[in-house]
Amino acid sequence: MFKSLIKTSRFKLLSSIVLALLSSCSNSAEQKNQDRKPLVLNGTSSTFGLQAYLRWFNQLAVNEDIYAEIESMGSGKSISTLLKGTNDFAGTDDPPSSEEVKKAPKGLLAFPVTAGAIAIAYNAPGCDLRLRRSQLAGIFLGKIDNFSQVGCNDLPITVLHRAGKSGSTESFTSALSSMDQDWKNGPGNGRLVNWPIGLAVKGSDGMATALNSTPGSIGYIESAYVREPLQVAALENRQGKFLRPTQEAASAAVSTIRLNERLVGKNPDPNLGYPIVTLNWMLVPARGLGNNTVALRRSLEFILSSQGQDDAERLGYVPLPDQVRELGLRQLSRLKR
């Protein structure tokens, strides 16, 4: 009986100590969260990557007390806004040129953060569209103006393209220039080109809305924005295979992109997978970050983590290859106060 009481007393004592330690740890963690001041960043994002940035910074607000006010715009305007020195970061799916980097008052670092496919979406119920390379260019050159010319029912085609300087336009027109000589010698490629035909719409959301509301329309849009009843065309790649922008096909193409020392690069005509893909970059000043240094570093650490990449994939984006993530994480050491 006496030994039993001793054991019981010891157990109660140990339990009290454990509970006290757990309570102390909990109070310490709560106090730490209360003491941590919220960090606020101001940024811009191309419409291509906007959904991913909103998801990432929602998670960062909950877990890290890092908040971001993000304005949506085309890639060209997103880059130019950062170059004026008024924002902390810029999201773009067209990397800055060497000339733009030279204009950056505090230097410029480009971090690949996600990737995606540019889908050819259309509003033609009952049409299973499979486009050869010359046919895709022919539609946007105005040579093909009816769905009956590409194996579907009689329905006039209404071409839609992006207004303003757009990274999606640069990716799409670069692909067309690689696929078709007439396009290369005509409109060419860039964030803004002289379209031979079509109606201009603003942003990826605007493109999705216009496609849904315009029977017979066809346009290019980041695949994460495509929702039923819209359909996407199967495109002929360099190997002669017809592929739609599935995760598997887009990932295969993204794996062919090679980056330079600034961590930027493209492949407008990959030999694997779906033929029109691009990375998305988060651009940040290289120096003079002051109190925002910690917030930017923590944000990029999360975005480039497995969890951050998984969050973007759930929205329809393509995760970065592991070696690209590692290059981005190593570059964090170059961020200076």
Rank of each mutant, 00 (worst) to 15 (best):
K3W: 11
K3L: 12
T8F: 09
K12C: 13
L13I: 12
L14F: 11
S15R: 09
S16R: 09
V18T: 08
L19G: 14
A20L: 15
S24Q: 11
C25Q: 13
A29K: 09
K32T: 10
K32E: 14
D35W: 08
R36W: 08
L39E: 15
S46E: 10
S46V: 05
T47F: 03
G49A: 14
A52N: 08
Y53E: 09
Q59T: 11
V62L: 13
V62R: 12
N63I: 03
N63H: 12
E64Y: 11
G76K: 04
K77N: 14
S78V: 07
I79W: 02
I79S: 03
T81S: 10
T81G: 02
D88K: 09
G91P: 00
P95S: 15
S98L: 15
S98N: 15
V101H: 04
A110K: 02
G116F: 01
A119T: 00
A124S: 13
A124W: 00
L129K: 00
L131H: 00
L131K: 00
I139P: 01
L141G: 05
G142S: 14
G142W: 12
I144W: 01
I144S: 01
N146F: 11
F147M: 07
Q149L: 13
Q149H: 13
V150D: 00
G151S: 14
D154L: 07
D154E: 15
L155E: 07
T158W: 03
V159P: 00
L160T: 03
A163S: 15
G167M: 06
S168F: 00
F172I: 01
T173V: 05
S178E: 13
M179P: 01
L192A: 14
V193K: 05
W195E: 08
P196C: 11
I197Y: 02
L199S: 12
L199V: 15
A200L: 15
S204G: 09
G206D: 05
M207V: 01
T209Q: 14
A210K: 10
L211V: 06
S213M: 12
G216N: 12
E222K: 01
Y225L: 01
P229M: 13
Q239I: 04
Q239A: 13
K241Q: 14
K241D: 15
F242D: 07
L243P: 02
L243M: 09
R244K: 15
P245C: 04
T246W: 04
Q247V: 07
A249Y: 04
A252E: 13
V254H: 04
S255F: 02
T256S: 13
L259V: 07
L259M: 13
N260F: 06
N267T: 10
D269G: 09
L272C: 03
Y274Q: 02
P275F: 01
P275S: 08
V277T: 15
N280Q: 11
N280C: 07
N280I: 10
W281H: 08
V284S: 03
P285K: 03
P285F: 05
R287L: 02
R287P: 01
G288H: 12
L289M: 07
L289A: 05
L289N: 14
G308M: 02
D311R: 02
R314V: 10
P319W: 05
L320R: 01
V324F: 03
E326R: 12
L329N: 02
K336L: 10
R337S: 14
R337E: 15
